[in-house]
Simulated scan of single mutants.
Amino acid sequence: MRTFDFTPLYRSTVGFDRLFDMLDSGIRSDWPPYDIEKLGDDQYRISMAVAGFAADEIELTQQGNGLLVSGAKTQTEDRADAFLHRGIANRSFKQSFSLADHVKVTDASLENGLLSISLTREVPEQLKPRRIAIGTTEAKPAGEPRQIGQDLKSAA
């Protein structure tokens, strides 16, 4: 259920389509549960509880600014009457994350049912801020008289 109508904002803004699309698609599934941690200025980690899934049953795909984590259980021959209670979910899942510019997946590991995805922001050198030195021109000595049109005549 959507509680906000962004239609008036679409008519009065230019270039913010991606932002409004992210707000519209903000409804996320709550399974599997996950945490997002900020480890440093440019270091992040997504931790997902994927109990019952093996590493070969989980797929990570980064395309542009999107990260898709999907899991599908391989079919096994289970007898339905063998379980008295089935509380570990075996259903497939797809969870997508929108990443900021220049954020890349650097590592992923699965240990004790917890999938850890390490992310790093790597801004290219040409996009980083750089300090520009301000040059000075040689000024004429203060005691030397100048006429207003003198510099224009000498340049011609």
Rank of each mutant, 00 (worst) to 15 (best):
M1F: 10
R2F: 04
T3F: 07
D5K: 09
D5C: 13
F6G: 04
F6K: 04
P8H: 06
L9H: 03
L9G: 04
Y10M: 06
R11S: 12
R11L: 13
R11E: 14
V14I: 13
D17C: 00
R18A: 15
F20A: 03
D21H: 12
M22Q: 14
M22S: 14
S25I: 03
S25T: 14
R28H: 07
S29K: 04
S29D: 12
D30Q: 12
W31P: 02
P32F: 10
Y34V: 03
Y34F: 15
D35P: 00
E37I: 03
L39K: 10
D41N: 08
D42T: 15
Q43P: 01
I46C: 01
S47Y: 01
M48D: 03
A49D: 09
A49L: 08
V50M: 02
F53Q: 04
A54V: 05
A55Y: 04
D56S: 12
D56Q: 12
E57M: 03
I58L: 08
E59Y: 00
L60I: 12
Q63I: 07
L68H: 00
V69E: 09
S70Q: 13
G71R: 03
K73R: 15
Q75D: 05
Q75G: 05
Q75C: 01
T76A: 06
E77P: 01
D78T: 15
D78W: 09
D78K: 13
D78G: 09
R79C: 00
R79W: 04
A80F: 14
D81W: 04
D81R: 02
A82Y: 05
F83V: 04
F83E: 06
L84Q: 06
H85L: 15
G87D: 12
N90C: 09
R91Q: 06
R91V: 07
R91H: 08
R91M: 05
S92C: 10
F93C: 08
K94L: 10
K94H: 10
S96H: 07
S96I: 03
F97T: 09
F97I: 07
S98C: 00
S98D: 06
L99N: 06
A100L: 10
H102Y: 15
K104P: 00
K104L: 09
T106K: 06
T106N: 01
T106H: 01
T106L: 01
D107P: 00
D107V: 01
A108K: 14
S109N: 13
S109F: 03
E111C: 07
N112L: 11
G113H: 02
G113M: 02
L114S: 04
S116I: 02
S118K: 15
S118P: 05
S118E: 15
L119E: 06
L119A: 07
T120N: 06
E122W: 00
E122H: 00
E122Y: 00
P124H: 11
P124I: 11
E125M: 13
E125K: 13
Q126W: 07
L127E: 14
K128T: 12
P129C: 02
R130K: 15
R130C: 06
R130F: 14
R131H: 09
I134D: 09
I134S: 10
G135T: 11
T136W: 02
T137G: 11
E138V: 08
E138C: 01
K140L: 15
A142G: 05
G143Q: 12
E144T: 14
E144Q: 13
R146C: 01
R146Y: 02
Q147L: 15
I148K: 13
Q150E: 15
Q150M: 07
K153F: 14
K153G: 03
S154P: 00
S154R: 11
A155K: 07
A155H: 05
